[in-house]
């Protein structure tokens, strides 16, 4: 990797201070994407600001009807949290199926959501559960957060401090992993919350997207039969040696039906 200045602040305020004016600085949470990128010399930041020492960013708490998860909370902690399992078991399941044990013990929710890899799992949950992303400056609704391929609403120097997930009446996540990387080639998160039914798809497109036709059908009848005839257009979906756009479009339907069945169990 190329040389860079390394910083390990103890507070959000210090982290923000360190980032100020450094346009080539990168924030590191779990480092599960950034470290391999640095090792492959695909990134050349001037500074790396490691949030690993910012204790205030990690943790899970229940606030009324919401589960609030700190940005630096590791996937393994989400997966094993009794609070998450009780409130939104599908979210604990999702976290427990990210990467491998090493990744789950290092990678963080905030890092994953801020990176917005098209094949990441969390964006599906954030959108389907209509979560709210909190930063050091504001609150951002899920639908407004994910903008495109590796692109989010976060401004320069803005940090995710936590994400608030409304409890779900029913929810499930079904992932079809890429055979090689085991990232989501198609992941469908289906949730029925106080705000209604949402179907969010990750892995298939440039960024997470909702399937409104399925949401409408499921609002009337929350069963897999209700969406069995809904076809997803392949236009604009990802295509690579592991899956054509047509295949991904087909898998969205299959994974959505299986997610609904799982949510109904």
């Amino acid at each position: 990797m190329y040389d860079f200045a390394y910083h390990r602040p103890k507070s959000v305020a210090d982290a923000i201070g360190l980032l100020k004016g450094k346009t080539e600085a990168r924030v590191m949470s779990g480092g599960m994407t950034l470290i391999p990128t640095l090792k492959q010399r695909l990134a050349r930041p001037s500074d790396v600001v490691d949030l690993g020492g910012v204790k205030e960013l990690a943790g899970i708490k229940v606030e009324g009807n919401n589960v609030v998860i700190g940005g630096m909370t590791r996937h393994a902690d989400v997966a094993s949290s009794a609070d998450v399992k009780a409130a939104i078991p599908a979210l604990a399941y999702l976290a427990g199926h990210i990467g491998d044990p090493q990744v789950r013990n290092r990678g963080t929710m905030g890092g994953s959501v801020a990176n917005n890899d098209p094949a990441a799992d969390y964006p599906g949950a954030v959108v389907a559960l209509n979560a709210t992303v909190s930063t050091n400056t504001r609150k951002i609704a899920a639908d407004d957060f994910f903008k495109g391929l590796f692109e989010t609403a976060l401004a320069e120097g803005e940090l995710i401090t936590g994400i608030s997930f409304p409890k779900a009446e029913k929810a499930a996540y079904m992932k079809f992993p890429n055979p090689a990387s085991r990232y989501a080639m198609v992941g469908v998160f289906v949730a029925k919350t106080a705000a209604g039914v949402r179907v969010a798809v990750t892995g298939a497109g440039a960024t997470v997207f909702r399937v409104k036709a399925m949401e409408e059908a499921l609002s009337k009848n929350f069963s897999s039969a209700a969406i069995k005839d809904i076809k997803i257009p392949a236009d604009g979906l990802n295509s690579d040696i592991h899956g054509s756009a047509e295949y991904r479009a087909h898998l969205v339907g299959v994974m959505a039906r299986r997610a609904v069945d799982a949510a109904n169990k």
Binding site: P179, A180, S181, D240, I241, H242
Partner: peptide, 18 residues
């Protein structure tokens, strides 16, 4: 898997070589 036109190795890492 090589790209048939450019000869680039597409399956050049464990991300793509299963």
């Amino acid at each position: 898997v090589y790209d048939k036109d450019t000869g680039q190795l597409i399956s050049g890492s464990f991300m793509d070589y299963t």
